[in-house]
């Protein structure tokens, strides 16, 4: 099933099952994000991608500098495995991972989750790419994707058992807007797709035209 259909099904289920006040609070959070203009100010195509040196769930250090030397990079920012939309998203990326790699690109997922939760995300979704630990969302902040959860939303999440201070291992209660970045070997962002509404994600197939173009360019 295409990612869009999966997400639509999840959303329908959510509206049906979640109490109205929860749905309203989540919608309000999305509306606030849209109103804040945060996504407009995030790093977009045509800018240099902030560099990173992060560990994956197993403590192995990955550096953007090293990996870009080998080819373009696909960076997938997500919230956590506690978010069913993120799981669907990551599984869709996994389905496209071979295609992405055959075009010479590396794939990295990034979230604010602890190493333990990052490992769990990889295991749960059968990922063949690492999930990097962005503690405190410092990299997300550099990309302009990090936002602070409102008191209302926090109360709801705690009630649902999603305690971000435990899942992310620090008390800031900030989250990362889901986003995909295609970064060229020279560090330039070639393509981005930022989800202000966390229930909507771009299909991984959308990344392929850009990667093909980069691959063709590097062959000249």
């Amino acid at each position: 099933m295409p990612l869009k259909d999966q997400l639509d099904a999840l959303r329908t289920e959510d509206y049906a099952n979640a109490p109205p006040d929860v749905t309203l609070a989540r919608q309000r959070a999305v509306d606030d994000l849209i109103a804040s203009g945060l996504a407009e100010r995030a790093v977009h195509a045509g800018r240099l991608a902030p560099a990173f040196r992060l560990r994956d769930g197993n403590g192995v250090v990955m550096s953007s500098h090293e990996w870009l030397a080998a080819g373009p990079m696909v960076l997938v920012f997500y919230r956590g495995h506690w978010c069913p939309y993120c799981n669907a998203d990551l599984r869709a990326i996994e389905s496209a991972a071979d295609d992405i790699r055959s075009l010479g690109a590396s794939v990295f997922a990034v979230s604010q989750q602890t190493p333990c939760e990052s490992r769990e995300t990889v295991r749960l979704n059968g990922l063949t790419f690492p999930s990097l630990v962005d503690r405190g969302g410092k990299l997300a902040y550099a990309f302009g994707l990090r936002w602070k959860v409102s008191a209302e939303l926090r109360a709801l999440q705690e009630a649902c058992g999603t305690d971000l201070s435990i899942l992310n291992g620090e008390p800031s209660w900030t989250l990362t807007m889901p986003a995909r970045y295609v970064v060229a070997p020279d560090g330039m962002v070639e393509y981005t797709d930022i989800s202000i509404d966390y229930t909507r994600r771009c299909d991984p197939a959308d990344l392929l035209p850009v990667l093909r173009h980069l691959s063709a360019r590097s062959n000249h």
């Binding site: 849209i34 195509a45 045509g46 909507r200 771009c202 850009v210 173009h213």
Partner: peptide, 27 residues
């Protein structure tokens, strides 16, 4: 990404941003 854009005063940078369905895509 495969196309050629004509840069004029109405749009000075070679980056295009679009909005759809609660997402912003830029290329």
């Amino acid at each position: 990404a495969h196309h050629s854009v004509i840069i004029g005063p109405a749009h000075l940078s070679p980056t295009f941003s679009f909005r759809k369905d609660g997402r912003i895509a830029s290329v």
